[in-house]
């Protein structure tokens, strides 16, 4: 269904292969359960493809159904040229995030894995295992909630000693329970604690993430959204050296003209000459 563009691109080849494997998986699940629903971005893609079908060349938008968003709501922009189709963009609508090629594959793998766990919720321990087994760039460490008091005290002492992050220190109130702390404060406390007490759990060359959870289980959608946010949301720009993502728009040649305009990839140098990547600078799609 997906066709290579002008010359061989290993990223695209890998995505196509992964996508075909996923579609085989979907077909097998449908044989067992006629009501089986694939991942919402795949549904969006199928909708766009179906629209494009016998239609003229051009771009088509597919959006996964808003009333069946158990794993979120996605849109896909597909371009048709003759009998060839190319994905131009995949977007998570809830988080307003564009999904890179590699992260798209991760989402499909994670969705296959969490499907094996029944229900709409997942245990934090299972969630962390699934991420660490399947996303090589991440190392998730689950914070042990039983250690929150010594962790809190340690973090407060370090911050007072270093005389920084006064806002955070103010929030660490001795009357508050672990559950009452804002999630950002819990994350900071957990990180300080892991760095101090469990440095052997950190893995070099990976993005080490300390995961804190106060609930016994987490909704699957929340889990996947959290992962997506970590991988390509705001924090991800600090891990450019590890998260070397390719966007679908990057796979279009930067000199290629679409409707008379030159396409500019998100990871390409910004045309203003700043030296920064387009996505962190002017973020212009066409010239």
């Amino acid at each position: 269904m997906l066709e290579r563009k002008s010359s061989f691109n290993p990223k695209l080849d890998e995505f196509e292969m992964s996508f075909n494997v996923y579609m085989d998986y979907v077909n097998r699940q449908i044989k067992k359960d006629i009501n089986y629903m694939p991942h919402p971005f795949v549904r969006a893609l199928l909708i766009a493809h179906s629209e494009a079908g016998n239609g003229p060349n051009g771009r088509y938008l597919g959006v996964s159904s808003l009333d069946d968003s158990s794993l979120g709501c996605y849109s896909v922009v597909l371009e048709k040229r003759g009998d060839k189709f190319s994905i131009l963009a995949i977007q998570n609508i809830d988080l307003n995030l564009e999904v890179p090629v590699e992260v798209g594959i991760y989402l499909l793998i994670l969705s296959m894995r969490i499907e094996k766990i029944g229900g709409n919720e997942i245990l934090p321990e299972d969630a962390v295992d699934i991420v660490n087994d399947n996303i090589p760039v991440l190392n998730m460490i689950l914070f042990n909630n039983d250690e929150w008091i010594p962790a809190r005290d340690y973090c407060r002492d370090v911050m007072r000693r270093d005389k920084r992050n006064n806002e955070v220190i103010e929030k660490i109130n001795s009357d508050m329970t672990w559950r009452d702390y804002p999630s950002t404060v819990r994350s900071i406390i957990a990180q300080y604690w892991i760095l101090e007490k469990y440095p052997e759990m950190l893995v070099q060359d990976k993005c080490n993430i300390t995961y804190t959870m106060t609930e016994h289980t987490i909704p699957k959608k929340t889990f996947l959204d959290n992962i997506l946010f970590m991988l390509c949301g705001e924090p991800s720009k600090y891990f450019d050296d590890r998260f070397k993502w390719t966007y679908f728009s990057d796979l279009v040649s930067s000199d290629e003209k679409i409707n008379g305009k030159i396409k500019v990839g998100r990871n390409h140098p910004c045309k203003c000459g700043s030296g920064k990547k387009n996505k962190y600078c002017c973020n212009i799609n066409y010239l």
């Binding site: 494997v21 996923y22 085989d24 793998i109 894995r113 090589p136």
Partner: peptide, 30 residues
Amino acid sequence: GTIYIPGLDVSLQAFRIEKYQLASKMLIAS
């Protein structure tokens, strides 16, 4: 079936897929 290329050396095909870390993970899960 969909990832098999008839006529191409099977060791080469296996090597190609093995080198794609993400596709391998996808296949293992699938």
